[in-house]
Amino acid sequence: MSFAIRRTTELIGATKWFLRRECRVLSTLPEKTEEPEKVVARKRSTGRRLFKNEAILESRHIYPEFLPDPNPKWRNSLREKLERADMLQRRSQIDIPEFYVGSILAVTISDPHAQSKTNRFVGICIERKGCGLRAEFTLRNVVDHQGVEVRYDLYDPTIQNIQVLRLEKRLDEKLFYLRDALPEYSTFPFDMDPEILPEGTPVPINPVQVKLKPRPWLERWERQDLKGVSNIEEHLKEKDRVRRELRKTPWEKYDLMKQYRKTIPIEDQNDIWDEVHNQLQQLQMAKKKTVRKRTFVTPKTQLA
């Protein structure tokens, strides 16, 4: 509700400023010297708020598991604080990089069942769910013409290394349709080299449109609003198209309360990121330092 109120006050302010400008042009009275200062002052205050909002906006996409479950029955500020402290402690031990659904990761875990006690899996992240220490992600790959998916806990202490081989986003939030897509869209070689993006570039969005195999499918992909699939229409029958129209819920996008219930309000998010931002920045700096150290390799001197 607060963001709605803030938007309306901003709108009112903007319209007032606009009207004043117009009036100045049309009126015969001399311009007052106070007005430009007022305008500048308001602009500066909005600018400061925008800057902080932008920082918040970044963090909630990079570290989505730091935000707690929005269900008010389970929320408790002390428990969330302790959970975040534990998460930061784990992050100080291992670098959990920024990745999104659609990025290709290589995960090495210490496996008591494997012969060498370590296990490396490369795959595309199809799902990322959970809040706090329960955060999980699923990787999918096609190995020897067999599709394999593995789920991992983000804060599992047996994970030795998470490496992002290709950092990118996709058009959808969950990529479960890859299970019914042609296998070439889910195959990634295990010895893939990491593609390093130059610093400061925004995360690229891969606009690939995946082709699905003919029916039967695991889910009704035509009823979900998927943007990353190209050829759903050619596999549908009349009956499916009719049923899809009946099942549509066009009123959902106007349901403000539903969206509010799913999200954490901006005031709480401010507090969370204030608490956690400094340490996360420090960890990022430490990671950059190690990356720079690694790239510089001293040439080996030849013995006479």
Binding site: M87, Q89, Q93, S110, D111, S116, K117, Y155, P157, T158
Partner: peptide, 11 residues
């Protein structure tokens, strides 16, 4: 404890 090193299993 979370502050401890990553768990490894011995061969």
């Amino acid at each position: 404890p979370f502050a401890d090193r990553t768990l490894t299993f011995e061969e």
